[in-house]
Write a protein that binds this DNA or RNA. Structure first.
Lengths: 184, 184
DNA sequence: CAGTATTACTAGATTGTCTAGTTATCAGTT
DNA sequence: AACTGATAACTAGACAATCTAGTAATACTG
């Protein structure tokens, strides 16, 4: 790694030979990769599917916020059907991570609560990581934090701007009439 | 939104009432959420599963780099079995996104190439987004880019540091002897 | 009190993955 | 050149997670 070569306009291509913008996107991609690898490890260490882990996170979050969730809430958060939610809760309940409690006022409904063990499990798997992240974030000065925050918001906006209608149109445009590519 | 209140030490809690470190992590989370929503939209607009889209990305990348991939390469990149890779390639081939070509030297092996249409499809769905991201990244000064890059690397490190052995031990620690939570 | 909406669940089908085993080809050895 | 063990892709059968459609109990509304 070279020292920071300076020009009159400040740092230039610090770190390696590539433009800073590329380095930034590369770093973002590296983070994404690391994150999904971590999620895979978490899933495997807990012996659960992806949705199950996500569900547990939502449930614990809701528990802490004092606003417990119903199966329906969970279904819409996870983007799965009511039927899948039932079987998901069966799984999580069988494994001891959640419990179905009667809703205090609505006798049709349920309140899903995460068990103590689920809380402990998630805390021990994700808590240390979160602490490391927070500690890194705290090392930023206020100005740096503002820069990073603004950048991340810009990135979120950039990926949100591609809405489905747009996507569908763009894809359709690729169908030049020549070869066959339809279903068999 | 309040204007930036200053103290002698510079900006303080700019943007809203919360500590900058929290805002940063919140922004990171917002980005993650936006990204996975985008991935869902992409999958749906292309009528594919998650692995299929990912496979296509790897294939196009490899094509451009001039280092085409075999089914085996793809399997290891995607973390799926050889059998799943075969059916995945069946799907992608039936839908016209990839083609199986004989390997030039090894007659057992195949070379998977992405079709023109697949290239166009991916370019039109992800290209505009990538351009927006790049453009936002370019708006950063060299110093800002360095800050963001360093931060993202720190985040990647933070999530990588939780390796599976650690996770397993931590989880085991949650099993206090009391209630039954095993398989039925 | 009657009728509609809503909640969670059940049944059956579909999809994507896995493990195990097959066939064809390669590379090294005698 | 023939033999042997390794490797590439594929096939068969099973399993897990999801979906759609439909059911029973409960809540709300006129």
């Amino acid at each position: 790694m070279s020292a920071h070569p300076r020009t009159s306009s400040g740092y230039w291509y610090a770190g390696d030979g590539r433009p800073p913008a590329l380095q930034v996107l590369e770093a973002l991609r590296a983070y994404r990769t690391a994150e999904s690898a971590m999620r895979l490890r978490t899933r495997e260490s807990m012996g659960m599917g992806e949705k199950d882990v996500l569900a547990l996170r939502y449930l614990l979050e809701a528990d802490r916020a004092g606003t417990p969730m119903s199966p329906r809430d969970l279904a819409s958060k996870l983007g799965i059907s009511s039927a899948s939610t039932t079987t998901l809760l069966d799984r999580l309940s069988r494994s001891g991570h959640v419990a179905r409690r009667p809703h205090p006022t609505d006798r049709r409904a349920l309140v899903i609560v995460a068990t103590e063990e689920a809380d402990c499990e998630v805390r021990s798997t994700l808590g240390a990581m979160h602490e490391r992240m927070m500690s890194a974030a705290r090392r930023l000065s206020a100005e740096e934090a503002a820069t990073v925050t603004a950048f991340l918001h810009a990135m979120a906006e950039a990926v949100e701007a591609a809405d489905e209608t747009q996507l569908r149109e763009d894809v359709a445009q690729c169908r030049h009439p020549g070869p066959d590519h339809g279903a068999a």
